[in-house]
Simulated scan of single mutants.
Amino acid sequence: MSKDILNMQNVTKSFQDGMSKRVILAKLNLTVGEGEFVAVVGPSGTGKSTFLSIAGGLLSPDSGTVMIHDKNISSESQKHLTEIRRREIGFIFQSHQLLPFLTVREQLGIVANMNDKATSKEIDELLEDLGLTECQKRYSAQLSGGEKQRTAIARAFMNHPSLILADEPTASLDAERGYQVVEMIRKEVKKYQKAGIIVTHDERVLNLVDKIYDLKAGQLVERK
């Protein structure tokens, strides 16, 4: 039986909207175990990015708990949260967020150096796995959209995080490349028994995940 990596219980989050308060998440619950890859879907404005930010410790819930392994990150200090994100969570952002003054290889190297976790050989293997060997000395301005996204994925995988969170990773890619990107995430989750969550509105990739959740009225409803 797999162990839980992410456990969100009764998570609530609201924002002030003029004179009223808008509830984005309402006692939301989700558990993702080792080797499990899930998708969260829903139209724009339903709170998918807010959900992912809370799952990854970038945003604090108003109430409820967010557990990564046996640690309640919703009650951690900012210093400890930063350390947890660095070692336990791999983020894949829609906008890539690559550093323009670093080459592909340097993008990975700087993450590895922050954690003292990866060797040059491991970087070589990751570049090869993601088809980036030939462009490892290029800067982000010299990369195609697909190469930028694969670099962002490689950076997220660099330190073998327990939890991979991907926010609309196929948004800037065509159908074929988008599917390949999600396949890469699935492969990493299954091979190393990580937990993976993809937030998407791309129905074409949903056959790659183990479970699909619709975000409705602030709660996650599993599709049967």
Score class of each variant (00 low, 15 high):
Leu28Trp: 00
Ala112Arg: 03
Ile92Cys: 04
Glu106Met: 12
Glu36Arg: 02
Arg85His: 06
Gln219Tyr: 02
Leu59Phe: 09
Gly18Pro: 09
Lys190Met: 11
Phe51Ser: 05
Arg186Gly: 12
Leu173Phe: 01
Gly145Leu: 06
Glu176Trp: 08
Ser60Tyr: 08
Gln9Phe: 10
Glu34Cys: 08
Leu127Gly: 04
Gln97Gly: 07
Arg204Ser: 15
Met19Val: 15
Ala195Asn: 01
Gly90Trp: 03
Ile24His: 00
Lys216Val: 15
Lys13Ala: 08
Leu98Arg: 02
Asp210Phe: 00
Thr119Glu: 10
Lys3Ile: 10
Leu143Glu: 05
Val40Cys: 10
Lys191Gly: 03
Leu127Thr: 07
Ile92Tyr: 08
Ser44Gln: 12
Val23Ile: 15
Ala55Phe: 05
Ser75Met: 12
His160Arg: 14
Gly47Ala: 01
Ala175Cys: 02
Val40Ser: 03
Glu134Gly: 11
Met1His: 13
Glu34Tyr: 04
Leu52Ile: 06
Phe91Val: 03
Tyr139Gly: 09
Thr31Lys: 11
Val32Cys: 01
Ala26Glu: 15
Ser162Ala: 13
Asn115Asp: 12
Phe37Asn: 09
Ile68Asp: 10
Pro169Ser: 08
Val221Ala: 06
Ala154Leu: 02
Pro161Val: 05
Val209Gln: 02
Leu52Trp: 07
Asn159His: 02
Gln180His: 13
Ser63Pro: 13
Thr50Met: 01
Asn29Leu: 01
Glu203Cys: 12
Ser144Tyr: 08
Leu165Ser: 04
Phe51Pro: 07
Lys27Arg: 11
Ser49Val: 06
Thr50Gln: 04
Leu98Cys: 02
Gly196Ala: 05
Ala141Gly: 12
Leu81Glu: 00
Gln9His: 14
Leu58Ser: 10
Ala175Tyr: 12
His201Gly: 07
Arg177Trp: 05
Ala141Ser: 14
Leu52Cys: 00
Ser60Ile: 03
Asp210Thr: 08
Glu125Thr: 14
Gln78Gly: 08
Met8Leu: 15
Leu163Phe: 08
Lys194Tyr: 05
Glu188Leu: 01
Ala166Trp: 00
Leu58Gly: 09
His201Asn: 11
Glu203Val: 05
Ala195Val: 06
Gln107Glu: 11
Leu208Gln: 11
Thr65Val: 14
Ala26Met: 00
Gln142Val: 01
Val41Thr: 15
Val182Gln: 00
Ile164Gly: 08
Leu58Asn: 10
Glu222Val: 09
Val209Lys: 11
Tyr192Gly: 01
Glu125Arg: 13
Leu58Phe: 14
Lys191Leu: 11
Lys190Cys: 10
Leu58Val: 09
Gln9Thr: 15
Glu36Pro: 00
Ser162Glu: 13
Asn10Lys: 14
Val221Arg: 01
Met114Leu: 15
Ala152Lys: 02
Phe93Asn: 10
Glu122Ile: 09
Lys21Ile: 15
Leu206Ala: 13
Thr170Met: 03
Thr46Trp: 00
Lys148Gln: 13
His160Pro: 10
Gln136His: 04
Ala166Gln: 00
Glu36Lys: 04
Lys117Val: 14
Phe157Trp: 07
Leu206Trp: 02
Ala166Phe: 00
His69Leu: 12
Gln107Ser: 04
Ala55Met: 03
Arg150Met: 06
Ile68Lys: 02
Glu76Pro: 11
Thr31Glu: 11
Asn159Ser: 12
Ile185Pro: 06
